[in-house]
């Protein structure tokens, strides 16, 4: 079987194994797995409200997944998506608050501001890696904390006077749609999912259809060979992180302009960036795969809320299932080996 087939089969089997393992855990802990999963399904797709909320939850996950997948394709590990989300969120809300313009200028401006902020936040580790060889993992992790605490302080001192939540953005900068909300029973669904899907197409286009994407991939496969072939490795490292950061920044925009319409002091990370790593891993760093993985994780996370109330299963179970899925994906080698054994014996 070709590599391509494996790239599809391994995640699918991992998901199935993860769900089965979840069922076994439910059985062992004295819960009914069928009613547990039924509650999960209802919590995510039970009616129009939950569907709306599920879409809302999937949207930023898709973007952070794309961000991390994009960097992965260039051989870079962008753990800083978390911080890029936070600065993107802040930038978008600032534009939404302080600029007065008609919607067709205001909204794009706020979105671009968020993407640029994320890009800028990723530019720092990019330039440090390119010029000084500092490992991007270390720098991006540190940039996460800088983002979290600086943004908290900015909210308290600049956006408000000692309060914990900023004012709400002008309606001309909002992605929220009354029409979408009205058909989904006041869920917080917003137009951001169109942006997320567009970003997925954009990533596919850049990676697979442009010479820039070809260079980025090539640097990811082998920086030395790429350099020998006359590519500017350093430029590509910075470029890759900047594009990755702008995707993550857009995830922050989704929260700022779509879900909340404001920004609050955060007691800890949003986890969007970290969940994005899992999404990218399950999606095999492929835009379509990332979209599907984000849908799966968003569904699991949204549906989890329903499990304690209607089936008595603790929400933590979903975290276990997600962790197991990731474990199975990461140990994809074993699945590959098992399939090959089956194939061989058949002959």
């Amino acid at each position: 079987m070709s590599n391509k087939v494996f790239n599809i089969i391994v995640p699918v089997i991992s998901v199935i194994l993860g769900l089965i393992a979840g069922a076994i855990i439910m059985l062992l802990s004295g819960h009914n797995p069928i009613s547990g999963y039924a509650a999960l399904w209802n919590g995510a797709f039970g009616d129009s409200y939950t569907i709306g909320e599920t879409v809302r939850r999937i949207t930023p996950l898709m973007l952070t997944g794309l961000a991390i997948a994009f960097a992965f394709r260039t051989g870079l590990f962008n753990i800083g998506a978390e911080g890029q989300v936070i600065v993107g969120w802040l930038a978008a809300v600032c534009v939404g608050l302080y600029i007065d313009a008609p919607m067709y200028i205001h909204l794009p401006l706020a979105i671009i501001a968020g993407a640029l902020a994320g890009a800028l936040w990723a530019f720092v580790p990019g330039i440090l890696k390119a010029k000084l060889g500092v490992h991007e993992v270390i720098v991006t992790i540190m940039m996460n904390y800088i983002a979290l605490y600086s943004v908290n302080e900015i909210i308290r001192t600049v956006l408000t006077d000692g309060e914990t939540t900023s004012a709400t953005i002008a309606p001309t900068a909002s992605l929220a749609s009354e029409w979408l909300q009205s058909i989904t029973f006041y869920s917080r669904i917003h137009y951001g999912f169109l942006i997320a899907l567009f970003a997925a197409v954009l990533m596919w286009f850049i990676i697979d259809r442009t010479s820039i994407g070809y260079e980025l991939k090539s640097v990811g496969f082998n920086p030395h060979a790429s350099k020998y072939a006359g590519m500017n490795v350093n430029r590509n490292i910075v470029l890759s992180l900047v594009i990755s950061g702008s995707f993550a920044g857009l995830a922050g925009v989704m929260e700022g302009l779509g879900t909340y319409g404001n920004i609050s002091v955060m007691g800890g990370f949003t986890n969007l960036g970290f969940d994005g790593i899992a999404v990218a891993l399950l999606g095999a760093n492929n835009p379509l795969g990332v979209v599907l993985a984000a849908i799966l994780f968003g569904t699991l996370k949204e549906g989890a809320g329903e499990m304690p109330t209607s089936a008595g299963v603790p929400t933590e179970l979903v975290d276990i299932i997600i962790a197991l899925i990731i474990l199975f994906v990461a140990s994809g080698y074993i699945i590959r080996w098992a399939i090959l054994r089956f194939k061989k014996e058949e002959k």
Partner: peptide, 24 residues
């Protein structure tokens, strides 16, 4: 579970769905 119950939130995004679930 019948007359009284609670819902735990693990992140900010959970507040709204949790509140709405009880309303419904």
């Amino acid at each position: 579970g019948v007359n009284y119950d609670y819902a735990q939130s693990t992140e900010k995004a959970d507040y709204m769905p949790n509140l709405t679930r009880f309303v419904r």
